[in-house]
Design a protein around this nucleic acid. Structure first.
Ligand code: FES
Ligand code: FES
Lengths: 161, 161
DNA sequence: CTAATTACGGATAACAAATATCCGTAATAC
DNA sequence: GTATTACGGATATTTGTTATCCGTAATTAG
């Protein structure tokens, strides 16, 4: 039960894009270099973000990615679900139907008791992720990462966007 | 990001064992037949439960599994973690270290801001599962499953334990 | 004691998902 | 026109899940 590593990549990339000057774009090539990731595969994750409407893209030279919404509007959950999908972690296989003591014709009206509990836990997980915005992440990073690194990274990005 | 199907199997089997008459055991063969599952593979899940101290086993004829603790003491989380392990769903790969603008020697004192948020969500998920006991599941099932099915299943089990 | 039954653990195979690469296409800036 | 970019399809590699097989040791019934 692991999230794909693309989830981490997408979160890092969104945090970077949130700090991008207005009207600028950053290419997948640069995002990959900045995080030490395989460019082609990272761009699959970016495509997921694009399809989810979280980032906007521009083609051609000086093109690339930017946020499509305000960082305050984008939540962790948005990003996680964009790349990971919206399935529950628990999949009820309805093995209760295999009980030989049950009449075959019996049809279930509601989800089983086990699945309901598991899905509540999944919902609690989502709830927590929904409560943290990309803007909050950026603020925390701004507080915790050394100023020198932040500045040099900002320059690095400015030189390529 | 899916839980293994063994998680469902373990939950169903624990619910069955919770209804077992005192001092009786139920063999993996019967648990597998009752749920329509591959016996050999199900027994791997049962071994996980055994190693976690949730079920106790007896060898030989009339042997098998029984709960090792009161159903009130066993939580969903106990069962899930027994078969799924205790890893977080999110694994921080520390790709922040790949930022070329960071001094190589810099060492991190605390987990990164992204991982902290993701792990809080994982903890919220666990919290929810910790709050539901096996006894509560059994009670819910007793309320929702038709009496006839419950009785026939109880007889089926009694005949083999 | 003997034979049947049971959980356990190691080895291994089949299958699915995650990870990764490659490349052709279309759009865009200069 | 040329270089650059995102996109999507095809495919390979690696890892994890699912599943089976079988030998070992413990236990019970007769
Ligand atoms: S029938 Fe097994 S969890 Fe729903
Ligand atoms: S460095 Fe990427 S999540 Fe921790």
């Amino acid at each position: 039960m692991n999230l794909k590593s693309q989830v981490e990549w997408a979160l890092h990339c969104c945090a970077i894009l949130a700090g991008l000057p207005e009207g600028r774009h950053l290419a997948a090539k640069d995002l990959a270099e900045l995080h030490g990731l395989p460019k082609e595969y990272l761009s699959k994750a970016m495509q997921s973000l694009s399809q989810a409407g979280l980032v906007a893209t521009t083609l051609g030279p000086q093109g690339g990615y930017r946020l499509a919404q305000a960082a305050e509007k984008i939540t962790f959950l948005d990003i996680v679900e964009a790349v990971e999908g919206r399935r529950n972690t628990f999949a009820c296989q309805e093995i209760r139907k295999n009980n030989p003591c049950r009449p075959a014709k019996q049809r279930e009206t509601k989800p089983c008791a086990i699945a309901r509990v598991m899905w509540e836990a999944d919902e609690a997980w989502r709830d927590r992720l929904r409560r943290v915005s990309l803007a909050e992440l950026v603020e925390t990073v701004g507080r915790e990462v050394p100023k020198a690194v932040l500045e040099r990274t900002a320059e690095w990005i400015a030189a390529r966007s």
